[in-house]
Design a binder for these strands. Structure first.
Length: 504
RNA sequence: GCCAAGGUGGCAGAGUCCGGCCGAACGCAGCGGCCUGCAGAGCCGCCCACCGCCGGUUCAAAUCCGGCCCUUGGCUCCA
């Protein structure tokens, strides 16, 4: 089965065929860097990252471009707040750095480039000029608007009729516009102080001298790029006129992506993107998580608390295009899934790297289960990146490992022994397919050469001595105390084993 | 009001495009058993679903068609 994706443009699940059979041009609508990234952003990032990884797994060379919108009145509104910075670009850089740090801690593959609006203003101006020349845009009081009535297919992405769209943009723009749904490509002058007020955090008062944003000279006078135009300018600059995949949040379908299509296709007469994929949003109780509602958990808080692997397991616990419930219970479940994978992985590595792993032992059912898990994983991912099903396939590898270890058990020195080739295949499968989900197994087993590990072993030796003399009360205390530190202790036939908390 | 997505067990979440293998996956929670000094982990088994409601098509529907109810998102900044 080949890869199929759900295309918002058609509403259908379609076979994915990039223009060039070896390359995929992927554009992801990145953030406006005016607030710290939250888990909602992380959810989309991780899903795009998984798409990227799966496409590479399928053999494509993925050219992934992701922008930072660093010119926006919301950024200007943050000037002077906390230690964010004293200018629009300083505030933007503060948040860009934070965003990049978060991306790294989520184990995201790097994009080919992360273009910023402030470095693409000449391209924006060129594009706006083209649109005016072709009659799709008009200047009004130093601002330039896109004329939606000239673009016949306007509304094709969000399925709306033009006369049902009431208006776009600030109220005071409306007098300058020919049609209420026309949207700004270029805005005259600097940032409107009212906009600063509107976007400032509560309690922040800039007084009589509101901060000012950047402006650029243009054929229409000093001004700033409109909100939507930058994505068209940047994606064309770095990926060309027609993208294979354009991905973004569901909340951007209208007006942002609709407007991108209009301005891009009007300018180039080419289809802007062949496949539009939209990531669904988090649900918190009965509303979405968002910056503007303030009901978010930041990425760094989440990573600190749960760790990268658990967060990625959580974020891929549903399909990218279905809503996900954000709740402690759903995260705890992800924690459990990840622990199962990691425990099985570590157990397999332990045995694999032991003399009990035999060159001749073969466990057909282990091998069969790995093969069918690999197939199930591929089928799931090819079916519109069904990450939940993919996780399920991974878990079945873990079960197969445990079953094999259970079956051989303490009898490894006897007839059978552990199936070296089977376990090696299992370990590689977890690494490879887990890697597609961006999960990384620690690759080392219990008893590592860390100081923490040495100390734990020391405590376990003491505990073992207590057990030998039947002092179970003290032994249990020691175990409880270790577990209070996050160290899992397990008594087995070969003595106690332990797992350090992730990150240690 | 208009546009879009969705309503599946106690929770979460696949399956719906291509009707039958769905008496509904995977996981969590719950219950038994194995193992264990105990616990955990693991293994084996079990419990819980008339798949929002009503009607239709069909030999056969969670899956197709029609109507209705409800939820969420978009129509203002938003992943």
């Amino acid at each position: 089965m080949t890869l199929h994706v759900t295309n918002t443009l058609t509403g259908e699940k379609e076979p994915f065929e990039p223009q060039d059979p070896e390359n995929v041009l992927l554009y992801y609508c990145g953030l406006t860097v005016s607030d710290p990234p939250h888990l909602g952003h992380a959810r989309s990032w991780v899903h795009v990252d998984v798409m990227h990884r799966w496409l590479e797994h399928l053999g494509y060379d993925v050219r992934h471009v992701e922008n930072f919108t660093d010119v926006n009145e919301k950024i200007v509104a943050r000037i002077g707040e906390d230690d964010l910075g004293e200018s629009e670009s300083e505030v933007a850089e503060t948040y860009i750095q934070r965003t990049i740090d978060d991306m790294r801690s989520l184990n995201l593959l790097r994009a080919e480039v992360y273009p910023r609006v402030s470095e693409h203003v000449p391209e924006v101006i060129d594009l706006v000029e083209t649109l005016i020349e072709k009659g799709y845009a008009y200047e009004s009081n130093g601002s330039v608007y896109f004329d939606v009535t000239r673009f016949e297919e306007y509304g094709k992405l969000s399925n709306q009729e033009l006369d049902e769209i009431e208006s776009q943009g600030d109220p005071d723009e409306r007098t300058e516009k020919r049609h209420p749904a026309d949207f700004a490509l270029w805005k005259a002058d600097g940032v409107d102080p009212d906009a600063i007020d509107e976007h400032s955090h509560e309690g922040v008062d800039h007084g009589d001298t509101p901060p000012e944003g950047l402006t650029w000279d243009s054929p229409w006078g000093e001004g700033r790029p409109g909100w939507h135009i930058e994505c068209s300018a940047m994606s064309m600059t770095h990926l060309g006129e027609t993208l294979d995949l354009h991905v973004g949040g569901r909340d951007l379908v209208f007006p942002h992506h609709e407007n991108e299509i209009a301005q891009s296709e009007a300018a180039t007469d080419q289809q802007f993107a062949n496949y539009w994929l939209h990531c669904e949003l988090f649900q918190m109780d009965d509303e979405k998580m968002s910056s503007s509602l303030g009901n978010f958990v930041t990425v760094d808080e989440a990573i600190d608390r749960w760790g990268t692997n658990v967060m990625r397991t959580f974020l891929t616990a549903g399909s990218y295009n279905s809503k996900q419930l954000y709740a402690n219970e759903t995260i705890a479940e992800a924690q459990e899934r990840w622990d199962q994978l990691e425990r099985a992985y570590e157990a397999a590595v332990d045995v694999l790297d032991s003399p009990q792993a035999s060159a001749k032992a073969t466990d057909e059912s282990l091998r069969d289960e790995i093969d069918s898990a690999r197939e199930a994983f591929a089928t799931a991912m090819n079916d519109d990146f069904n990450t939940r099903e993919a996780q399920s396939a991974l878990l079945s590898v873990a079960t197969a490992i445990n079953r094999h270890l259970e079956a051989i058990g303490g009898d490894a020195d006897g007839e059978g022994g552990y199936d070296y080739r089977g376990l090696r295949r299992a370990v590689e499968t977890l690494e490879e397919l887990g890697g597609v989900l961006g999960l990384s197994f620690r690759g080392e087993t219990t008893g590592t050469a860390t100081l923490a590990g040495d100390v734990v072993e020391l405590v376990l030796d003491v505990r073992e001595a207590e057990r030998d003399v039947g002092n179970y009360e003290r032994a249990d205390e020691l175990r409880d105390e270790l577990e209070a530190l996050g160290i899992e202790v397990q008594d087995t036939d070969e003595g106690a084993t332990y797992r350090l908390p992730s990150g240690e």
